[in-house]
Amino acid sequence: MFEEYPKEIMSKDGTPILIRPLVKEDEQALTAFFSRIPEEERWFLRDNIADPDIMREWIGNLDFTRVLPLVAVKEDDNTIIANVRLHRRPSECLSHIAHLRIVVDPAFRNQRIGSWMLLDTVRLAMTMGIEKLVAEFVAGVEEAAVHAARKLDFYEEAVLKDYVKDRRGGYRDLIIMVKNIHREWSDF
């Protein structure tokens, strides 16, 4: 599945970047990456993986049949600048679905890194036989990711009104976006 990695991409400003699977040796670099994500955004992550102990446990127990983590790294110094994770459920009835979560270093936003990562995840999902990709985004926080996802034909399946709380106790909508991985042509 990972024979084609690393894959070369380039940011809008011409910085050479590699996309590759996460490896255990990335632990410190990934902790550093999450520590650069603003507190207001980290608040919405499922786990506090900027915490070195939680990171160590998470990366030490990686099971690629459940979670496929990819990272984008600067080619010159291997700094992690984006992370996408593809989560799959073990049950047969949900084996055709994967949930994706994506985070991009603020210093590298609006550089198409997230778009390339999303595209790569879609292609990976195609090779895995995934039929439906699901992504959740917090309204007003992850607008750039929503925009990039729309460009790849993700559509809003549902909006859970006032579903998550921000740090100040305010409510925000959770946007659930879905992309169907088409296996055949439409007859239209």
Partner: peptide, 16 residues
Amino acid sequence: FKEYYTNEPNIALREE
């Protein structure tokens, strides 16, 4: 031959 990413517009038209 390897797959390479490109933003060449015709390739970028469809993700497959």
